[in-house]
């Protein structure tokens, strides 16, 4: 059973996103979900998911909101990022060609996270950060 430990909502701007990202990463550390040396990977995946929601989901429209929820159980931390866009299928996003400029965010999320899926009925990207106990 997942226990929620962080929820925040923000307008779809990159500046607002940056502040929430910092607080969410701190919450992951305080909750014991990640050891300090794995913080960059967790921050990376959260940032990719939030930027995706702001820019592709909500088309950077500040009226539209993004919400991030973190919840944990013994297996890991469930991350949900809600937007107000049309959704997408993470499984159908192909790994980009080396020369292609964009499209690497989902590729990175798929590497570090498990159970990556977009829940269309909830308008949210859900992923799990596997348990990485602090030594």
């Amino acid at each position: 059973m997942y226990e929620s430990f962080f929820q925040e909502e923000f307008s779809s701007t990159i500046d607002a996103m940056g502040e929430v990202l910092n607080r969410a990463v701190q919450a992951l550390i305080q909750q014991g979900c990640i050891p300090a040396d794995r913080e960059p990977c967790a921050r990376l995946c959260l940032e990719e998911a939030l930027v995706n929601a702001v820019e592709h989901g909500n088309l950077a429209d500040p009226v539209r909101k993004v919400r991030v929820e973190l919840a944990s159980d013994d297996e890991g931390c469930r991350i949900r990022v809600y937007d107000e866009g049309n959704g997408f299928h993470p499984d159908k996003v192909k790994d980009p060609d080396p020369e292609q400029l964009g499209g690497r965010g989902i590729c990175l999320i798929r590497h570090y996270m498990t159970d990556v899926e977009y829940l269309a009925e909830k308008h949210c990207l859900q992923m799990t950060l596997p348990c990485m106990p602090v030594e």
Partner: peptide
Amino acid sequence: VDYLSSSVLTELLR
């Protein structure tokens, strides 16, 4: 630098 995002990779490709 301790990490970078896909947006940085895009800029580096440019």
